[in-house]
Amino acid sequence: MAERDSPVLVADVGGTNTRVALARGRTLVAASTERFRNAEYSGLDAVLQAFLERHRTLPERAAIALAGPVRGTQAEMTNLGWQVDASALAQATGMAEIALLNDLQAQGHALAHLPETHLRRLRTGTPEAGPKLVIGLGTGVNAAPVYAAGAGHIVPPAEAGHIHLPLRGDMDYRLADWLIARRGFASVEDVLSGAGLARLYAFHAQEAKTGRTFDAAQIMAAMEGGDALAQATGRHYVRLLAHVTADLALITLPFGGVYFIGGVARAFAPWLERFGFESAFTDMGRFSDLVTRFPVAIVEDDYAALSGCAAYLQAH
């Protein structure tokens, strides 16, 4: 069997769970995907060793997506406390080559290979060949452009969730002042992450002088139940998300489409049309006609990061 047809190991390391699978080419091997609870293991090396022992295999190559900053062969899981070193991991597992990717980079490598059934289209735009933009909304917020390059793609790392929150109108400026007083800075992640949604609700509760605090799950349930304060928070969230997305789109010109990933994005999917995402996204003044051309979709594939790791290995 040719080396490039040999099975490879792919993994997606989150704050709570790690998914691991085998892949051939860009295709995950049927029934090979397993989920491990990180709290039950001392580190990623122990997770991978358990997987390899169970499957009685030792692939030569691996690609691992991590929810944290990656610098070359080093990564830090900020919400988990794991330090990951590719060389040490290779030595511990016996694999010859291990590549580390930020989880958003892995999602970017998957975009070109996702079937239409794994996408929820929000707007069709005018799709054409060109860069794509992937935006992650979950425990954190990040975004990265995806550029075609030879047989694969280039997905540069970024920390786009830490940029300034776009502000329009008195309420946004009051929100920014409120965030600065509590966070020292009014960033996109401070509002659009899961914890950020809870902050946005707390701001609206203060504005309404109710003093209530809800977490993200409670807010979503209250929105579904018709609660006025929760729905006002949701509308504000959707408008800010649309403005951030349009700003990033004007930077990257994603004629190939904008793709949201992450649990918060999927949770808000039914509310985006209802709360005016389209009108806010295209409200960019003299640049509105340009922004209108960009397609937007939500990725509904929980295993896209694993497929992205496989695509990365196939191209490298």
Rank of each mutant, 00 (worst) to 15 (best):
T139F: 04
D227L: 13
V188W: 07
L306M: 09
L229Q: 14
D103K: 01
T124Y: 06
M1W: 07
I180T: 10
T210D: 09
W82N: 01
E159L: 12
V258D: 10
R71E: 10
V70Q: 02
E40Q: 14
G234Y: 00
E3H: 15
A216C: 09
G285T: 14
A222M: 10
P156D: 03
M220R: 04
A143L: 14
A39C: 09
A92M: 02
R24T: 15
A310R: 03
R235S: 11
L44V: 07
F275W: 15
E40A: 15
M284T: 14
A129H: 06
S32K: 10
A267E: 11
A46R: 15
V238K: 10
I135V: 14
V47I: 15
E116R: 08
G308Y: 10
A39M: 09
T292G: 07
E60H: 14
R4M: 09
G308V: 07
R61N: 15
R26W: 08
R37H: 07
A99T: 07
S193R: 05
E3Y: 12
V134P: 01
L28E: 12
A31D: 15
A310V: 05
V13A: 15
P131N: 13
A86Y: 04
Q107P: 00
V8R: 13
A304T: 08
R26I: 14
E224M: 05
L52N: 10
E34L: 11
N38E: 06
C309L: 07
L175H: 05
L66S: 06
S279L: 14
T233N: 04
G184C: 04
A311C: 15
I163Q: 13
A242L: 13
A222V: 04
Q231T: 06
A21G: 12
A208K: 04
A99L: 00
D289G: 09
A304S: 14
A205R: 06
N79F: 08
G14S: 08
F255C: 03
A198P: 12
W271N: 05
A106K: 02
P115R: 13
Q218K: 10
R239Q: 14
A106Y: 00
D215Q: 09
G161I: 14
R293C: 05
C309F: 04
R24E: 15
V13G: 09
I135M: 13
L122I: 15
L200K: 06
G108N: 09
E159M: 10
L9G: 12
I298M: 07
R56A: 12
V134S: 00
G140D: 12
D103W: 05
V29C: 07
A205N: 03
L101D: 08
A315R: 05
I98R: 04
M171G: 00
R266W: 04
A205I: 08
A265C: 03
H55P: 02
D5K: 08
F185G: 01
W178I: 01
F275C: 12
L104G: 01
A315I: 09
H316Q: 14
H316W: 05
A217F: 09
L66G: 02
M95R: 03
A106E: 02
Y41C: 09
S32D: 03
R274L: 15
A242D: 14
P69H: 11
G140Y: 13
L101G: 06
S32P: 07
A149K: 12
S307F: 03
N38A: 03
V244R: 04
N142H: 05
F255G: 07
V84H: 06
A86R: 04
H204N: 12
